[in-house]
Design a protein around this nucleic acid. Sequence first.
DNA 1: CTAGGTGCAAAAGGTTTGCGGTTAA
DNA 2: TTAACCGCAAACCTTTTGCACCTAG
Lengths: 149, 149
Amino acid sequence: MRTVEKQNKKSRLNESLKNSGMKLTRQRKLVYDTLLEKLDHPTAEDLFFRARKKQPEISMATVYNCLEALVKCGLVKQVKVGKNAVRYCANLCEHAHFVCEVCGAIFDLDRDNREKFKNMQIKIPRGFKIHNFEIAIHGTCSDCNILRI
Amino acid sequence: MRTVEKQNKKSRLNESLKNSGMKLTRQRKLVYDTLLEKLDHPTAEDLFFRARKKQPEISMATVYNCLEALVKCGLVKQVKVGKNAVRYCANLCEHAHFVCEVCGAIFDLDRDNREKFKNMQIKIPRGFKIHNFEIAIHGTCSDCNILRI
DNA sequence: CTAGGTGCAAAAGGTTTGCGGTTAA
DNA sequence: TTAACCGCAAACCTTTTGCACCTAG
């Protein structure tokens, strides 16, 4: 990663935390970096193991706390699909998630749908206000479809 | 409820269970009826307390088992929003859920959006297959907006 | 008659919390 | 300097499971 990008990333994290009245700590940076490294929608536990490789003292509770902070300041979103632990997503574009019912993998659907999501005018009752929305599509991915033939 | 409707409901439950190789039991009927009574997206625990009023011997585990059976046979859907227990929904129309971030209430959005959801052509990668999708909209409901002014 | 379901209690996740020590600003 | 945060362990809440008994078909 180029130096400029690193600075952008760090300052984005710092700013976002500061805007929400929170501090930039080593652990929060570590968890955020770890999440950005591999955009595969890891669970808190996944992130714990990945983060521990770089900072062995970090604890599970800290990972949860850091993720909570990152969600609060708007840099990370929770993804609740399947029947297991919550997954985390640092992709801030409006996008849908495709969940493979066979292998459990989660794919971001954004490239071809961004306009569609932007223009989607869902009708809501008078007086309601929308903050954001999430779309989860359940199905089977190409790899699993091939294996099933 | 008219007798015809009762029969339709019972036979629908019976057929759906049978199609999935499961039996119609008193508890499954009770849990399904209880869910249909009040379409407020209750948790398993909510349903347990409501069902227990009619059949005090029913256990929490049975409520979970019955809900699992109802989900498997396609009559009930799980709704995962907010940070607490899974909620259950017996509305089988394609619809989105509006989740109030203040009071936690969940509203079905279908009336004005059914066509939109049907026609929504989300682009997915080659080889992927869609089974179904869920849309959750987060925001604030009219009651909570009034109280906040 | 018997496969499948129930009720109970106990265990298993996943997540949160209380607390003493540490650190960012 | 000090409010906020970390690491640990224990608690908590939701959900699942094992097992003896029961029941729908």
